[in-house]
Design a protein around this nucleic acid. Sequence first.
RNA 1: GAUCUCAUAGCUCAGUUGGGAGAGCACCAUCUUGACAGGGUGGGGGUCGCAGGUUCGAACCCUGCUGAGAUCACCA
Length: 890
Amino acid sequence: MSKAQERLQTEMPTTYDPTVAEQRWYDAWIQGGYFRAGRRPDAPKYSIVIPPPNVTGMLHIGHALDFTLQDILIRFKRMQGFDALWLPGTDHAGIATQTKVEQKLREEGVTRYDLGREAFLEKVWEWKEHYANTIRSQWGKMGLSLDYSRERFTMDEGLSQAVREVFVRLYEKGLIYRGKRIINWDPAARTALSDIEVEYKEVNGHLYHLQYPLADGSGHLTVATTRPETMLGDTAVAVHPEDPRYKPLIGKMLRLPIVNREIPIIADEYVDREFGSGAVKITPAHDPNDFEVGQRHDLPQITVMDESGKMNELAGPYQGMDRADCRKAIVKDLQEQGVLIKIEDHVHQVGHSERSGAVVEPYLSTQWFVSMKPLAEKAIEAQKSGQGVNFVPERFEKIYLHWIENVRDWCISRQLWWGHRIPAWYCDACGEMHVSREDLAACPACGGASLRQDEDVLDTWFSSGLWPFSTMGWPDEDSADLKKYYPTDVLVTGYDIIYFWVARMIFTALEFTGEIPFRDVLIHGLVRDAEGRKMSKSLGNGVDPLDVIAEYGADAMRFMLSTGSTPGQDVRYRTEKVEQARNFANKIWNASRFALMNLQGFAAEDIDLSGPLSTADRWILHRFNETARDIARLMENYDFGETGRLLYNFIWDDLCDWYIEFAKLTLYGEDDAAKRCTQSVLAYVLDRTLRLLHPFMPFLTEEIWQHLPHEAGETITLAAWPAYDPKFEAEEAVKEMSLLMEAIRAVRNIRAEVNVSPGKKVELLIKPSGAAEESILRRNETYVRRFCNTSSLALDAGLAPPDKAMTAIVTGAELYLPLAGLIDIGQEISRLEKELANLNAEVERVEKKLANEGYIAKAPAHVVEQERAKGQDYRDKRDKVLARIAELRG
RNA sequence: GAUCUCAUAGCUCAGUUGGGAGAGCACCAUCUUGACAGGGUGGGGGUCGCAGGUUCGAACCCUGCUGAGAUCACCA
């Protein structure tokens, strides 16, 4: 072993150790400032803003998928010469983070009310700092090429200013209003929620039939309800105006049991005559539909619960009870009074808070809303006129449109402490309300100083919706980043937040920047566990990306996630898949070790592709060239799965299994000129292949590239993306290689069949079909000798086949192995007959196809031509096999 | 109820404008050959969910059905 080889052994052990490369290179990349945008001021830009992860905790494997896809795109574009910006950041995630911090405090025996607003917020900021750091370190472990100099947080100063600006402008336009409405109330978190923060789950409940007596004592009316406790807030019973059963009762009064209040029977078309009894109790303060009915009929609104879901003073004897307890109690009481006449099982959908899990209460309260119609119309028009964003896969456009076409006003106020405080002030002196960009100290109307700012904060998604432009410096229209990098090129995210986030970014961007915020939206699926279940804390089936990285390496994880899925489709996390990716990394590592051992003393300047290249040399250059071309095309289409397959097949099959084996012949041979050619090709192809792979496996490729002779450049991160080069086209080398490969395979096959060990030399006779084939085989005779391990090789078009020999018919040649003592003529004949049957079937199939007039007339010419050529090939082979069988039979 | 996705080898999944069915793992045989046993070589295994239709030609397009899942909307 030479000294150089020894050094290689210590620097490059036989197994790739990801931890070494990962530690070495991420810091170096950051130090070098390679990820900073603006390095190529004159180049066209390519920009992505990261979907900001919540500062609620650590990143999970779903983040790893999302970020890997973006990193692949940004690295690809950076190598292509774009001025690439990938802007990082985090989201304050109002309700989610506040819940987490409150939970932590509760474990310490403290509530947020004990601390007070200011002290509580300090705790949240501490939490935020801690997790933002954790997230940053996780980004590093994943190898993400983020421009940290531009990192943003939804609650930092600039973004908060953007939030105020948007709020004030919408308010001034009349698109933000304050009003008393039925909203979704989370009694656990004690805050309002938007419609999409409510998850409907199927619940086995009951339908209670209650008999309300008429006030004049003339009878009863039966109503059906799933929520009997709300009867305390009933202010009417509604029937359908055309329902003959109840028509005479309309306008009469009922006496509400327990509370003994008189309520009217009203007529409203909202009532479905078929359902239940056809009469509906109306509780305007606790049901959105009833609220509407109440508005139409001018009914009183009686709220019978408080903010925590407990019954209030209007609930009489039930005051202080929790909703659920009250239901039990009231059912019992109604039963005793004979009012409850029937209980049916009833399956229905019940809304739960997406965050706290509590059953959401439709609740009447004063909140802030965004008037969605005008904003939605703009977005719909943009999309339908072709000026909208381009969804990948396309089907998500329909999902988006469906939502935005049916969207209702957006409740944006939250009764939380963590978030952007609503910029509205109330004057105690004159009673006026003022909405302002700046904090107000005195009332602009009366000059009074007793101003109170609205206690509520904004929905988290209000600020997230501005992310693509607020991070670039908006509302400062002169911001250099805004001018250069906005709008962004692509947004990469999961289908689960299309409504929450994607839609909101689109309509706010259109309203405030007059442009769509990104050209493409790449939608990916969720990462599920091995059984296909959603990962969740309660199941404990979550996968920590750091664990995966520690065990298999970041590159293996990245490769598995990015190439193991199709856009929009969920991925299952299975260890076998990561193992496969890890093995792939190791394969590349070892191929590189081989190359480096044979490139000792060979420098980048020595690479010379103009010499007498061998068939294999020209072939691998051709294969590399078309692989590079195909990959660039696939990457533009976000087809990472297919890209991965192409890379895998090219590297493993073509480069490692064939080219390197062929290369050994010249590398270990005596011909120095041929050796230099192979060294050049090996160095060149490996360098360029690493570049193709770099966006997927940044650490491994950098580590190897740094050892390899390559063009000047301090990092593969900034190396040029290999463009297709017509000078490498070598169709004839492809043909030659396929003849050689087919012949070599055939001989290996026969040897395996008769158990001749690969180490044992055999005699081989080759009869080429023509002069061209003969010339190819003669030129590459050394390959054939080596890979077929021949003791003697006869190559002659006029060859007379020996009687006792195994036969292989390939395209362009007949091969004979006279294996004395191993051949049973009968067996050989039946083997050939089997092959004959296969060939006959093929010939028949092709001929049948070609006999079809419609096919000849309508199929594309090149397809027909291909088929004809195949047919000819099969016939040739068949005839030769036939002839051989005849010979053997004598 | 509406919309959407999925159904392909034992398992997990690809299949790029319709042109003779693929990969990895698993399995079998074989090779301890000087980059790699996390390897090499070779092999077995699929009526592409079912039924129709369009087409010269369908895993792919259309219709219906079955099964699994998702999203949205709901009648109290």
